[in-house]
């Protein structure tokens, strides 16, 4: 006997609503806020929204690989913070009286970028090696790395804020192409997103990653070098955190040990809202972008609604808890 097509349509519509309830809710919120506060769709706000989303999208892309393989990376924010401090130290103005390393000459921007990406890669490679070779749970391994990197940043900077960066460097964040809304940072994030899409969907890297997330033992039996793949995934994630730190310091015009504080949790929240399953094996680049964008829209909408800053954390926390509860509901309903 065939099911009633109307009933089936009704059910699939219900499933669509259930799968995207947070995204739909925040789109509705954005519509309401833009009606009440027309500035919400103003050029400067859109530019700010796009810039913030771009940086968080890059870090979320790194975290997504870890989540898809049933892991996590709690060191993401601190790695970005550490690399932001390193980039700021390397790219301070040479005539600045309080230059942190006065003996350092003028480092080319590209060399500084290579150094911070290298640092990110090293941190990621250590994470990946500890997780895959010593079988340490990712939560614990990356929590240890988070604390270690934070300590390193404190020692390296003496907990001092670093500013007075060269205009060549800050120009990466302030520059734009054509329309001021489309900043270089947004274009860099778009390019990174495209590269990651190719890696996830068209290359062996992605196939192995999804296979490991779906069923690690089966992937190993099928010939996937799980340890090597995990090390690669965490190393690439580290490179992305390095890039995020580099762009963040340029955007803020400085850095401190608290730069990118809590970004790993925002990235995990963005990925979860965007449909990356914490059960592993599932997650798309477009979903990650939407998840991060939704989270940023939520934050900016709250500011525009005049929500007191103390309350914003409660709202963000509730949204994350609701997202996890919905994820759990989906899992239980499937069972």
């Amino acid at each position: 006997m065939q099911a009633n097509p109307t009933l089936r349509q009704h059910k699939s519509f219900g499933k669509f609503l259930m799968d995207n309830v947070i995204i739909i809710g925040i789109i509705l919120l954005a519509i309401v806020v833009s009606i009440l506060r027309p500035n919400f769709l103003g050029e400067s706000n859109l530019r700010n929204l796009l810039g913030n989303t771009a940086i968080r999208f890059i870090i979320a892309l790194g975290v997504s690989g870890c989540l898809i393989t049933k892991g996590t990376d709690l060191s993401a924010g601190r790695t970005a913070g550490f690399t932001a401090c390193m980039a700021a130290i390397l790219l301070q103005k040479s005539d600045y009286a309080n230059k942190y390393w006065p003996w350092l000459g003028e480092v080319p921007v590209i060399a500084a970028l290579a150094i911070v990406l290298g640092i990110g890669a090293l941190i990621g490679a250590v994470n990946g090696s500890v997780i895959s070779l010593f079988k340490v749970p990712p939560f614990i391994a990356t929590l240890g790395m988070q604390t270690l990197v934070y300590g390193l940043a404190l020692v390296m900077t003496g907990a001092q804020p670093l500013g007075s960066l060269r205009s060549q460097y800050t120009g990466i964040a302030t520059g734009f192409v054509g329309n001021p809304i489309i900043s270089y940072v947004a274009l860099i994030a778009l390019a990174v997103g495209l590269i990651m899409w190719l890696l996830y969907n068209k290359m062996r890297y992605g196939k192995y990653m999804y296979a490991i997330g779906g069923n690690e033992a089966a992937a190993e039996v099928a010939g996937v070098n799980v340890s090597r793949s995990k090390i690669l995934i965490y190393t690439l994630a580290g490179i992305l955190y390095g890039l995020c730190g580099f762009l963040l310091a340029a955007k803020s015009g400085g850095a401190s040990v608290n730069t990118a504080m809590g970004y790993e949790l925002e990235a995990i929240a963005g990925c979860t809202i965007g449909g990356v399953s914490v059960n592993g094996g599932v997650g798309r680049i477009s979903g990650i972008l939407i998840g991060v964008l939704v989270f940023e829209v939520l934050k900016i909408a709250m500011q525009f609604m005049g929500l007191k800053s103390d309350y914003t954390y409660i709202v963000q926390g509730l949204v994350i808890i609701i997202a996890v509860a919905l994820d759990l509901r989906k899992y239980l309903a499937k069972k």
């Binding site: 709250m302 609604m305 005049g306 929500l307 007191k308 103390d310 309350y311 914003t312 409660i314 709202v315 509730l318 949204v319 808890i321 609701i322 509860a325 919905l326 759990l328 509901r329 239980l332």
Partner: peptide, 21 residues
Amino acid sequence: ALDVIIALLVIALIAVLIIGT
């Protein structure tokens, strides 16, 4: 029961938005 918890969380979210603004 999970649906009820989710509904309560949503109500809490709306309440925080109202109180906070």
